[in-house]
């Protein structure tokens, strides 16, 4: 307990809780009564949540609570799993993303995703970033593409580190660099929402700090949803926090409120380390 508090209050990584008026932002994604089944297992129960534009929303909760599963529903990544079934309504800008007419491919172009483990393709750094724009036809010519790649890498805060070796394989970078490359790769397709599934869990503290800083910058343009194991991280980077437990959304609100004054006793138990 003590150790945990010590770590939590360590000044170097602890950005102060920002009081931002997030209510001013519009709803980007609206989920209503979402149920997810894995075969016979009922993995997500009755989850309703509104995710705001230009806001970092954190999903926290003990492992196996369904936070990652729910995240993957938001860009239909669960479609790639045969046994997974999603019920309920999820709207992006008012459109049902599980509508039969919706092409998951187009959806994922708008709702990008960054994964737990950095997963650069075994290609050059340039090709990694250029991959998305190429398949979506965002560039008219090579010069265009160069510009998009540079912009994405700058936005991924990694341009200065890789600008001299764009033709080197992306797998040769360090873990933190790889993850920022993956973020750059995701923003290169100009998504509207960025989903991040524990983006720092495979990184060391310094790389984590760099990525967290980046997430904060991304907020100005995107709606960011981040799943995290670390409550400190949720507190540092997010404005809104949702706490999941055993497939239920227990509590959703302002990050500052969740961490200082939780309503639900389960949230309090988790935050104080009694469950998890």
């Amino acid at each position: 307990m003590d150790a945990k508090l010590d770590k939590g209050t360590e000044p170097m990584y602890d950005a102060p809780l920002r009081k931002t008026d997030v209510e001013a932002n519009a709803t980007k994604i609206a989920a209503k009564d979402v149920q997810v089944y894995y075969g016979d297992t009922h993995a997500i129960k009755d989850v309703s949540v509104d995710i705001l534009d230009k806001t970092v929303t954190a999903f926290i909760g003990p492992s196996g609570c369904g936070k990652s599963t729910f995240l993957r529903c938001l860009n239909r990544m669960n479609d790639t799993i045969d046994v997974c079934r999603v019920e309920g309504l999820i709207q992006l800008d008012g459109e049902d993303i599980y509508d039969k007419r919706v092409d998951p491919v187009q959806l994922r172009a708008k709702v990008g995703m960054v994964f737990q483990k950095p997963n650069p393709f075994p290609k050059s750094i340039y090709d990694n970033v250029a991959y998305g724009p190429k398949i979506h036809g965002l560039a008219k010519n090579k010069a265009d593409l160069d510009e998009i790649v540079e912009k994405a890498l700058r936005r991924g805060a990694i341009w200065d580190e890789v600008k001299d070796r764009l033709d080197k394989p992306g797998t040769g970078l360090s873990g933190g660099q790889q993850q920022r490359l993956c973020i750059a790769r995701a923003v290169a397709t100009e998504p509207e929402v960025l989903l991040m599934d524990e983006p720092c869990s495979a990184l060391d503290p310094i790389a984590t700090a760099q990525v967290e800083e980046l997430i904060d910058e991304l907020r100005s343009q995107y709606s960011v949803v981040i799943v995290t194991h670390s409550m400190q991280q949720a507190a540092r980077v997010s404005q809104k926090t949702a706490f999941f437990h055993l497939g239920n959304l227990v509590e959703y609100g302002e990050t500052s409120q969740i961490f200082t004054n939780p309503v639900d006793p389960r949230t309090e138990s988790y935050i104080t380390g009694r469950i998890g």
Binding site: N75, M77, T80, V105, Q106, L107, R108, A109, K110, G112, M113, V114, F115, K117, N119, P120, F121, P122, Y131, G132, I135, H136, C182, R185, A186, T189, L195
Partner: peptide, 15 residues
């Protein structure tokens, strides 16, 4: 081929 590469690509909206 690791699943993470497929996920990465689908996540970018590739078919």
């Amino acid at each position: 081929v690791p699943q993470s590469l497929r996920d990465g690509s689908y996540g970018l909206g590739a078919t």
